[in-house]
């Protein structure tokens, strides 16, 4: 696990910054809830009558006045988008950086097979994503306890599980792309995360574009749907897992035979 340890050390600063930023924003959102709760009756009506905007964020299905409704919409966006950016950035860079920074020659002239390099780098990405989610999960629950609200365990767990799967799927896609890249990985990773997010907004707004929710991982992360149904959409999750797995398979297929320049 030498490469795993090395990758975790290399990605330490980025991990701390992203985890700190997402955790801080999420906690601030939760700490604002008691103050917002009293004002939510009027705001809730306003939010539920904003047409496409309401549909895009699922605000027609849940109440902003409840902790879980507020958390699913507000905090969901912070964790959903922030986590997606971190996962995409982390995975898109992990293989490509060796050629971009010209360190591949050093790494791959040691007796460590390319298969092992790919596997250990993938493990490192998954470990960072898992650690980020555990820290964020703990911070969220801690913040909810601190504001004296009853924790809606089932819904919170489902929401966090959905975002965790989303990040794994995005990281799988970006990991596959990373094997093909020699530079520009960060931009492509962030671009993919942003595009999939907006594809989901389009799918929510336009009925004819509803199929897009099966393509984008944000399709199974709609906080309103999860809270109102009390479950994840199994089909969308399965499609997502397959897409992520295809990305990982592509990474192995390419990197094992790639000419390193």
């Amino acid at each position: 696990m030498t490469v795993v340890r090395h990758e975790l050390r290399q990605g330490r600063l980025s991990f701390l910054i992203w985890t700190g930023a997402i955790g801080f924003l999420l906690s601030v959102c939760i700490f604002l809830f008691p103050e917002m709760k009293g004002e939510m009756d009027g705001v809730g009506e306003l939010f539920s009558s904003m047409g496409s905007f309401t549909a895009a964020f699922g605000m027609d299905k849940i109440s902003f006045g409840t902790l879980i409704g507020y958390y699913a919409i507000e905090c969901g966006n912070v964790l959903g988008l922030g986590g997606a950016f971190f996962a995409a950035l982390c995975a898109a860079d992990v293989l490509a950086k060796e050629e971009k920074d010209r360190t591949a020659e050093f790494l791959l002239t040691h007796p460590v097979s390319r298969g092992r390099v790919v596997t250990e780098k993938l493990i490192a990405v998954f470990l960072q994503i898992t650690a980020l989610n555990l820290v964020i999960y703990a911070l969220s629950l801690g913040s909810m306890a601190l504001i004296g609200e009853e924790i809606p365990w089932g819904e919170v767990n489902l929401l966090h599980l959905a975002y965790y799967i989303l990040q794994l799927e995005l990281s799988g896609i970006c990991f596959g792309i990373s094997a093909f890249l020699r530079k520009g990985s960060a931009g492509i990773g962030l671009g993919i995360a942003a595009i999939t997010y907006f594809l989901n907004l389009i799918a929510n707004i336009t009925e004819s574009a509803g199929f897009l929710s099966y393509v984008t991982p944000f399709g199974y992360c709609g906080g309103a749907d999860i809270v109102s149904s009390g479950s994840l959409d199994g089909v969308k999750v399965a499609v997502g897992v397959l897409i992520g797995a295809a990305g990982i398979a592509a990474a192995y297929g390419k990197y094992l035979k790639k000419d390193i320049r």
Partner: peptide, 28 residues
Amino acid sequence: TGYLPSEAVFHPGMRVGEILKFSADLRR
């Protein structure tokens, strides 16, 4: 095989000793 490339480039943020240890660890 021990290989010395024409231009030695290492991962950022590492001290010399860490690079040498990393290289040895990769060779177990």
